[in-house]
Design a binder for these strands. Structure first.
Lengths: 216, 216
DNA sequence: GTCAATATAAGTATAAATACCCATATACGA
DNA sequence: TCGTATATGGGTATTTATACTTATATTGAC
């Protein structure tokens, strides 16, 4: 797998982390050239100069953070393989890294084997998510029933009306679509609020999405 | 890897598919016992009788579908390794399979190597998502800007108010929290609607979540 | 120093949502 | 058959949101 030479950039603001990872990767990959950047701006310059095969990009960096650096880098080189590298707690930013165009996603708690897999995968034009991150995502989906909103079961009619509400229709418009009285829609909507344990439309939709009562 | 004997169930309502996959897996794994189920109910009985190591579970099955079968199976055997197996178009049900407790996720368009990886991974207590599915998920996140809602940039204050709206607070309550006039909140909210190209609260929140303007 | 964006606030008006009350018909399961 | 859930619809009232308008002070960029 690691027969031909390839270039890699480590972008992270902690020198010790960069140096250590550099050492580890140099041991694993025989023919590798590693460059280091301490922030997003330096990383962009390095990308322009050295045309790397892979970039390991920290999310939290000074000057230009990993998300912005990834956006700009992907604009210039859409096929560049960028692997996001973050700490626990940065999970909220993974969506933004995906939007920016990163192709691999590692936590800093990963072991070096996983980093190796990630590099090999993205170079083979595949996505890579660290197992720990997948577990976090899965757990988030499975166990976010924290607010005791039970897995509410709406009736078919309620489900239908919920979906129309989500599309932005008013009760009046829904009643015309379904050929029923607006007052009936009012009532269904009130029942939806009660079942969803929501005070208003905003909470109804937040809960509906959190608990996957609707598809987005 | 495949040294010791292990048991596997293929649950799918298409006999040809079951038989073919059975043949393929028998070739790949030397010491494997494969049982077949044509629907969710049969699958549950087989699980009770044979205590399998892995179940390949189709989502769309008669009598008891894959989601319900997975729920019941995981209730009885929380550590059972269930791999969801679905066709294109069933993607909306993956969330439900995750909630139900499946640990691997394959598309029927996967090649046999990916099935092998999935089986090995879940038996090693890891999650497995097929690369095609990851790509779909990533593409969904990256390219769902279909309604020309540009990557709206809200001001800090607007962002703050958006998050309070999502938590279910009324403009009156928000104004009290932020020590500003309700009319100011009214105005911010109107600006939010305009920037989000939404007609009402429901659409505002749908767009906010779709485009990750807020974290859920 | 000017321009643009933002945060602040208000007037006025209508539309929509929410919160209670009530009733009737239907269907489905114990 | 009896009860529960559901779908339908209405009365009344209040609260909330939305749509227009205008205005001022501040901040930051160029």
């Amino acid at each position: 797998m690691q027969k031909h030479t390839f270039d890699l950039i480590i972008a992270d603001d902690h020198q010790l982390f960069r140096n250590g990872l550099n050492m580890l990767l140099s041991t694993i990959f025989q023919h590798i050239t590693i460059r280091e950047a301490a922030n997003g701006t330096d990383c962009l310059s390095l990308i322009q100069k050295s045309k790397p095969d892979v970039v390991l990009m920290d999310i939290d960096m000074p000057e230009l953070n990993g998300i912005e650096a990834t956006q700009k880098a992907i604009q210039l080189h859409p096929d560049l393989n960028i692997i996001a590298l973050s700490m626990h707690g940065d999970e909220a930013y993974y969506f933004k890294m995906i939007e920016a165009g990163a192709k691999g996603f590692l936590l800093k708690s990963s072991d070096i084997e996983e980093v190796k897999s990630a590099i090999e995968n993205v170079m083979a034009n595949q996505y890579f998510f660290s197992n720990e991150l997948l577990k976090k995502m899965v757990d988030h989906i499975r166990f976010n029933n924290d607010e005791k909103v039970k897995t509410s079961v709406f009736s078919d009619r309620e489900q239908e009306i919920l979906e129309l509400i989500c599309k932005g229709f008013s009760n009046q418009e829904i009643s015309e679509k379904l050929f029923i009285s607006k007052r009936t829609v009012d009532k269904h909507r009130a029942n939806l609020l009660e079942k969803a344990q929501a005070r208003n439309t905003a909470q109804l939709i937040m809960n509906a999405i959190k608990h996957h009562w609707i598809n987005i």
